[in-house]
Design a protein around this nucleic acid. Structure first.
Length: 428
RNA sequence: GUGUCCAUAGUUCAGUUUGGUUAGAACGCCAGGUUGUGGCCCUGGAGGUCGUGGGUUCAAGUCCCACUGGACACCCCA
């Protein structure tokens, strides 16, 4: 029996983990710049939280959740998205009582049992942010700006910000009727799927990928043209704020978010270098969510972004995300006498924060040199019986091959960065 | 959930059309190329139950079926 990682999950191997670390570190740095603080919530929650928060009728809740019963009989679900969990935490800990606008971010794994394809896995990772407690379009703008800034900082090219407004409970129902009426004229020609969606969720027909559907809906009425006064003003103000922040965007009246809780602003960031799953970011305003899960109505905005999709885009665009960690020096033992001593010296260097590698397999000098070369170290320290007697070690510069001898006692200071010494490093 | 294509060493792939002796290559890995020294080069070596299970056949990596897994698209979404 051979074990394999399960369908739709992936290992991040030692050779590629640095990419994740690089991206995560940049994300954190941008989040901190915007003064968002990290929130971490458990990987599972009560199933009902997601059912209520995301919407019973959504595909996510209806057919994609990893739901199971624990030994106590409670129905649990691996989180398929983060917003509901964040809102639960916000409510549970009364975060809103501590300050009027709570700004949090996260980097976490999510789980949805979908069929895997390019940019879509069953365990995938998202980063995102939520600003809870603000109804002003300045909040919407900050969230959009924040998400875009991550891509700018990472050097991602060819991404587009598309914004829309999906209205609110006051104007969306009326618009739905108008849209339905319009679509009824061409009902017979719509694709089967779109026909089914007409009653339940006619907005979705607008972003159908079926070519004929697209043709039929080219002149369909759009939500953004049927907003109530409040929503309309909000949308217009958002646009002018984005312009003042020099954030390029386009209005796409067909953006519809798949989750029930969105109101007013909905936006996406699209990468042209991804396949069919081209959304890097999805986000928007969800003023109704908190009330839905038992809190008081609290205006909020947030976004979620797929890290695998970000990495795919960066690979496609050949954005070099630094290098994997490598030791600065490799200590080689020239003979049996040097072996134990090499390990001891390595420990001393490590205690002084000098990344260092040493052979543990008792390999030949030649093999150790090969290993040092493979690891691309800058310097090799060679220690053998001859050197031991004189209290010396050989230092070989691997770039130019030049070798010098120095006293063992000077080893640490030789490799220490100027200005760094043991006293400045406290975490021992 | 539906569809299309795919599945051979650690990796990328030949070999499958026209079934037939010990399944190959490249890269990677390991060890050597005389005295204590990497990269290039040379020599040698290890490594595969040909995804799994059935079937056809004297004979199957090669043909047929099922299953599993992968890639991509639909659906949906980050």
């Amino acid at each position: 029996m051979k074990f394999k990682s399960i369908k739709g999950t992936k290992d991040v191997l030692p050779d590629e983990s640095y990419r994740w670390q690089f991206v995560e570190q940049k994300i954190r740095s941008v989040m901190h710049t915007f003064s968002y603080h990290e929130i971490r919530t458990p990987v599972f929650e009560e199933t009902a939280l997601f059912a209520r928060g995301i919407g019973e009728l959504t595909d996510i809740v209806g057919k994609e959740m990893y739901t199971f019963q624990d030994r106590g009989g409670t129905m649990l679900t691996l989180k398929p998205e983060m917003t509901a969990a964040v809102m639960r935490s916000y409510l549970q800990h009364n975060l809103g009582e501590q300050k009027p606008l709570v700004k949090v971010y996260y980097i976490a794994p999510m789980f949805r049992q979908e069929k895997p394809q390019a940019g879509r896995l069953r365990q995938f990772h998202q980063f995102g942010a939520e600003a809870i407690g603000g109804s002003s379009p300045f909040v919407d703008a900050e969230i959009i700006a924040l998400s875009a800034e991550v891509y700018r900082v990472l050097g991602v090219k060819n991404f587009q910000i598309k914004i829309n407004s999906v209205g609110c409970i006051n104007c969306r129902p009326q618009y739905k009727e108008i849209l339905k009426k319009h679509l009824q004229n061409v009902f017979k020609e719509l694709s089967e799927e779109s026909k089914q969606r007409l009653e339940q969720n006619p907005l979705r027909i607008l972003d159908s990928k079926d070519e004929n559907d697209q043709k039929l809906t080219t002149d369909a009425p759009l939500m953004k043209d049927h907003l109530c006064k409040e929503c309309s003003e909000h949308f217009i103000e958002l646009q002018s704020i984005l312009r003042s922040l020099n954030i390029e965007f386009e209005i796409d009246g067909r953006i519809v978010r798949g989750l029930d809780y969105y109101t007013k602003t909905a936006y996406e960031i699209i990468s042209k270098d991804l396949g069919a799953q081209d959304a890097l970011v999805g986000g928007g305003r969800y003023d109704l969510l908190l009330k839905e899960i038992g809190g008081k109505q609290t205006p909020s905005v947030g976004f979620a972004a797929g890290i695998e999709r970000l990495l795919l885009t960066m690979e496609k665009q050949q954005i070099f995300t630094g290098e994997n960690i490598k030791p600065k020096v490799f200590i080689v033992s020239a003979d049996e006498e040097g072996r134990g001593y090499a390990v001891e010296q390595a420990m001393i260097l490590r205690r002084n924060n000098i990344p260092c590698e040493v052979d543990l397999l008792g390999r030949s000098l030649k093999s150790q040199m090969r290993e040092a070369d493979r690891q691309k170290v800058e310097f090799v320290i060679i220690i053998g019986g001859n050197e031991l007697q004189k209290g010396l070690v050989i230092i070989k510069n691997m770039k130019n091959g030049i070798q010098t001898s120095i006293g063992v006692k000077d080893l640490v200071s030789h490799f220490q960065e100027p200005g760094e010494n043991i006293e400045t490093r406290e975490n021992r």
